[in-house]
Structure formats: structure tokens, C-alpha cells
Design a protein around this nucleic acid. Structure first.
Lengths: 376, 376
DNA sequence: TCACCCCTTGAATCTAAGG
DNA sequence: GCCTTAGATTCAAGGGGTG
């Protein structure tokens, strides 16, 4: 493994003699220029994690006053949305040239950029096969309470065209998912802990992706021995996973610090034995149902009256799933329960009762009914 | 409630005398033409469920041989992706004209169209606030085993611009979600059972959306009395939910069969009564109480001693509601808190504590007492 | 060793009102 | 427009220390 320098200033024409396809290497340079130098129709799969073009305002602090370490790197800055658009179409065009006719591409992004990416993918003649949602188990909250917690990112999977015969290992995915078809929503934790690359206690890359995410993609959409290209290689997650899964890889990256980290990491990566496959799976989340869901879905109507088991307190259900007690206090089922009792905490599911078939039943029974109706 | 016919062939210029804003009505006609006739800056919120441009191939059968009833309606057919693009930009442009400056728009779609929609939204100057994933609890499986199960749809929430002051009922959403911030991934079952409109056993509309989904959107992003417009009204889910939640609504729809079903449905919908509609308010919306007021009204006496929770700092309340710390610094409760901690900001209401019943309590509890005593 | 508590951190377009 | 001030605002994981 080594770094091949793309000579800066070299004419970056498609006509120039292409580099031989150097496998399992990091190519240093701008991804568009480097791709131009690669032979056409030579790559089986592309995984791309391009800059998101976040447009952050000033500093952001958590409620406790601590500072949020945001993505402020130069590589994420674009003058205008138009510039980002042209950049996106340029690299997607080169990607299309070097993909084999039956190849495919994956791109990850957030709402800042994914619509531009998706529109470009369609305009350039790719054929979208799925969009996939990565649900983050532990996203960063919205500290100011101004929007919904940004708890997911989106991936687009596209083939070279409507008739292209892409690779999809249906059986592997079904096995990986306890014999149920793999859905388009995947849950993984964000990259942290031992997996997160750090130098002197500081994260090496601001947006390192979890290996589990790439693992599932390569397992689903490539075969052993295939060539996987990552034009925004960063710290080499794609390379490490490809090596583990017995795929060839090519990485393109501009920054020396990322390249150094990626080389060390990939050198240390060992091909996985089968047993590791099971550890890559995210634990099945126990289905959680919020009280408000029962209101939204009509299992309990706003205006319904609840009491405690001894009928000491009464409360009315409101449209947002809060309760209003007869004495004028309001809150969630748990909060109001604890307030009324003067207790530090209260499980509203068992505390609050509703009348059904002539007797009081905890509202948890409604939740059970809902779960029975909606869970497979 | 009634249908107002948009005369076909009438000149659809923005200059023509706009219709008065007829509330709680279905306007019959092409959504672009009808919107052109509506007054500018007159609508608080738009919910739009446009055609998805599905581009289905031949018939699809389940493994057992039964036939899948797909979306084959005329309204979902567009000659090319370019035609769909122009259609999308046209209706989004009119939507933008009739939205109030602090209004907002929601659009739902799938990977077939949502990237085109999102790109157009950004190009037209809207400001995306979140993308939301509707995870279907019970999606249709991928019968051929060729891709991942398409188990979600995507919604885009956007304001009129970066500086626009959109409505977001943060507190209601948090209450609805058991006291956790509402995330960007929502799980609901698809529309079926009693809720699914049928005529002679056949579904009236191929893509009827669940009321729970619209319920959450309207609860989060509108206020009682607001005007909600749905330019692709279909069988009137938006109208039914708006009526229930005490919002005004306007629907635009071309097809008589959908209009008839929507009218019947909305007539049968029951509005929630006032008390159920009252929702948890953010402190932002609650009347503000200055710290000085508590001093003026005697809830806290000048000379009283406050400390932080860990008793690292002490300060004395002065007659004008400022604090004087032991080290001689003075300022408002917020300013002194941030100065002492060297923090960029500090909420004095929770930082400063007073001793009551033998233990420390934040001075915010005094404010709550004051509010309970003085608010009607 | 384990349970428990505390601290840190993560792709974030992150305030509102008044002068 | 800008500037200032009041005051509202966080969830799940992982790691380290302690009992």
C-alpha cells in the first residue's frame, strides 16, 4: 500500500493516458482530477461521502455552556449553492465514466445536500434503486429547541441505468436481518468509542462514518474481488471494510493527515472471520411507544378522561398528548403523575387508568393493543 | 362547505382579481391555476402530497400469484423527468407566492420525486428546516427480492427563507414524545382499516395518507385558527385533521370522485373542544417575568442570599433586582452567572439557588409560584 | 469485578425582542 | 439594518473513577 501522487498542473483531460488501475492504494489529489486519470468502465462499486455543504452560523453551545465542535473545515465550504451544484455534477460525471456498465454507486448526505445530489444522479442517467435512511441511535440533540432532532442521514443507491444488472445479495441481507427482508431504514450508532480515530485525544476527521454502515453496503452490493472506489476517502473506512470483506479498494483523498491515518488503519485491519458478522448487527431496538402516538393514531381521543386507580385525581387528554388535571396542572403522563403525588417520579403508563368495559384499566393496556396491531 | 369551480379557460394571470380567501372549502381545478387566483401572502402552512412520478414497468404479482394494485392513474403520468421538473417548480413557485412571509411548507415524496422536489425548494429560495422520514410500520415487501424493502417516505419541511420566523411548537412535540425531543424519524402504520376510504370495497384513492402523520405536522407547525392549504387534496386527509385541530383549511383538487369523498369525510369529522386543543406551551410563549418583579412584589426580599447549586459562589439580591457577588461583581442574574463562570451565556433562573425547606432550589421555582398566583 | 456516577461528545444550516 | 439584553435549551454512548 502506498500513496500515488497526482502531479498538480498536469493536464486533466480524459484523453490523456490513464493510470493503470492501482488496486488497494490511496491516490492523492482532487477527486475529479484523479478520476479523470482512471480508465473508463473499471470499477464495480463507488461509495461516496462528499462534503455536505453545511452552512453553519455562529458558534453553538450546549445548554450546559460547553462548546459544540462543528464542521468548519475548508473542504466543506462552497461559495454558493450553484457552485456546490456544479461540483456535484462534475464528480458524479467522472464517477459514471469509470464505473462498469453493471456497476453501481452509493452516496451519503443530509438534507443540506442530498436533494441536489439525488437530482444530479437522476439527470445524469443513473437509475435510483433505493434511498436508505441511516437512523442514528445517538444523534446530537437540537440544543435550542428550534427544530426536530436531526437524527438521520440519507443514502442513495443507484445503478448505471434502468436496464443495468446491478449486484444485490438479497440472501445475505435477509440473513443479516433475522430472516426478514432488509428494509430501507437502518439503525446504527454514530462512530465513536474505540472505532473513532483520534490523535492526541482529538478526532482525526470530523465526520468519520461507522464501519457497520459501509459493511452492510459492501456486503449487499459487491462480490469478493470486486473493485470499490471511494472518491472522498477521508480516514479510509471504506478501505478498511473492503479489506476485511475481501474486496479491492481505491481511495482518493487530498489531505495528508487523513491519508496517514487511513494507511495506518487499513494496514491494521484484518480480514474478518464469519463470527464477526453477527457482532456487526445493531441490537434490535425494543419498540417504544410514546403516549402521544396513541393520541395521534386515535387509540385514545383528545378529551378522554383518565383517573388514578383510586380515583383521587382526574385528568383530561389534550391534543398533544399532555394531560390537564382538574386542579389546572398540566404535563406529560409521567410528569403530571409525579406532580400530583408529590413523588420524584411516576410511571404514567401504570398510574393513569381509563374506563373500559365498566372497570378501570391502566393505559398501558392501550399501548399493548397498539403494539399488537402494528408490530409484525 | 362546498366546491367552488375554477372556470376552465379563464385567464390564469397573477394580475387577475384574486378570489377572496374562501376558508374551509374545496376549490376544484388544476392546482397551479387555482393557486394563481389566490391572494398573495395569505396562507400560514402548506401541506403538499404531489404526484410521485412513479414510472412503473409492467404488472407486478405477489409470490402467490395475486395482482398488486399499483398507482396507474393519469395524474401520476409525466412524459419525461424534465416535464416533472417543470411541473414541480411551477406549483412550488405559486405556493411561495401565496404563503405568508413567516409561513412554511411541507412536501411528502419518495425517492422517485423527492430529490427533484428538494432541489427545486432550495433553488426557489425556501430554507429547508428538516427532512423527516416516515417509517412505515407495515410496508409492502419487495416481492421480487431485487432491492431493499421500500419502507419509508420522506417529507421536507421548509420556511420562506433563512431569516423567516416559522412556527414550531417545540413543547408540544416534546410532550407528544414522552418528554424527549421529537426526532426526524417518525413511525406510523400505513393508512388502512377503518380509516381507509373505500367505495364498493375498492379504495377511493391509491395513496391516502394516514391522519396521524398530518396530525403531527399540523400540531407541530401551526396554531389554532391558522390557514392550511393542501394543493393536492385527494380525499381530504388534511382537511379532516385541520378541522379536528381547529385550523382553517383550503383544498385544491381536480377529480370529482375525490372531492365527493373528501366532502363527506370532512363533514363527519368532529372538532376537538377547546380544552383538548390547549397544548403544552414553551416558556417562550408564556408571559415573561422579570427577576426584578419578584423583588418588587416581595416574593424575594432585597438582601436575600443566593448561591449556585454547588455553593461555589454567593450573591446578594439588591433592591433593583441586580445581584452583588461576594467578590464585588454585580449584574443581572444572567450576566453575573455568566461572568462568574466565564461562560458565554447563563440562564440565571436555573443557575441561582435559594434555600427553602432546608435545601437549595432554583429561583425559577419562585417564578413559577408567582405565575401560578397571578395568571388567570 | 461490578455497579454506579460523572464527564465528555457527536455532519448543527440552533433565539427573540427591543432600542 | 445593527447592537444589546433577557433568558431558553440536550440525548445516548462511551470512558474513567470510585466504592
Amino acid at each position: 500500500m502506498g500513496v500515488i501522487e497526482k502531479l498538480s498542473g498536469a493536464p486533466a483531460l480524459a484523453q490523456e493516458a490513464p493510470l493503470d488501475l492501482a488496486l488497494d492504494r490511496i491516490l492523492k489529489g482532487d477527486c475529479i482530477e484523479v478520476m479523470r486519470a482512471l480508465p473508463a468502465a473499471s470499477v464495480d462499486l463507488i461509495f461516496a461521502d462528499p462534503p455536505y455543504n453545511l452552512q453553519l452560523g455562529g458558534d453553538l453551545n450546549r445548554p450546559d455552556g460547553s462548546h459544540v465542535d462543528a464542521v468548519t473545515d475548508e473542504w466543506d465550504k462552497f461559495e454558493t449553492l450553484g457552485h456546490y451544484d456544479r461540483f456535484t455534477r462534475a464528480w458524479l460525471t467522472e464517477a459514471r465514466r469509470i464505473l462498469k456498465p453493471n456497476g453501481a454507486i452509493w452516496v451519503i448526505g443530509s438534507y443540506h445536500n442530498i436533494f441536489k445530489v439525488g437530482a444530479a444522479i437522476q439527470d445524469l442517467g443513473y437509475w435510483i434503486l433505493n434511498d436508505i435512511v441511516w437512523r442514528k441511535a445517538n444523534p446530537m440533540p437540537n440544543f435550542k429547541g428550534t427544530r426536530f432532532t436531526n437524527a438521520h442521514e440519507t443514502l442513495i443507491w443507484a445503478s448505471m441505468g434502468e436496464k443495468s444488472r446491478y449486484t444485490f445479495n438479497y440472501r445475505s441481507m435477509k440473513t443479516l436481518n433475522d430472516e426478514l427482508q432488509m428494509r430501507s431504514d437502518w439503525e446504527f450508532p454514530i462512530c465513536g468509542g474505540q472505532e473513532r480515530l483520534k490523535k492526541d485525544g482529538v478526532k482525526v476527521h470530523p465526520t468519520q462514518k461507522p464501519e457497520a454502515l459501509i459493511y452492510r453496503i459492501l456486503l449487499a452490493c459487491s462480490k469478493p474481488g470486486d473493485v470499490i472506489l471511494d472518491p472522498f476517502f477521508g480516514t479510509g473506512t471504506t478501505g478498511a471494510v473492503a479489506k476485511r470483506l475481501g474486496r479491492h479498494w481505491i481511495g482518493i483523498e487530498r489531505e495528508d493527515s487523513y491519508i496517514a491515518a487511513a494507511e495506518e488503519r487499513i494496514a491494521a485491519a484484518l480480514p474478518l472471520d464469519e463470527s464477526a458478522l453477527t457482532t456487526m448487527q445493531s441490537p434490535k431496538a425494543a419498540p417504544k411507544v410514546a403516549f402521544g402516538t396513541l393520541v395521534e393514531t386515535g387509540y385514545l381521543k383528545p378529551g378522554a378522561v383518565l383517573t388514578d386507580a383510586k380515583r383521587r385525581w382526574r385528568a383530561t387528554v389534550r391534543a398533544d398528548g399532555s394531560l390537564l388535571s382538574d386542579c389546572g396542572q398540566a404535563g406529560s403522563i409521567h410528569k403530571l403523575g409525579s406532580t400530583l403525588q408529590g413523588a420524584p417520579a411516576c410511571n404514567g403508563w401504570t398510574f393513569w387508568q381509563h374506563e373500559a368495559e365498566g372497570k378501570l384499566q391502566p393505559i398501558d393496556t392501550i399501548r399493548q393493543t397498539y403494539l399488537l396491531a402494528t408490530q409484525p
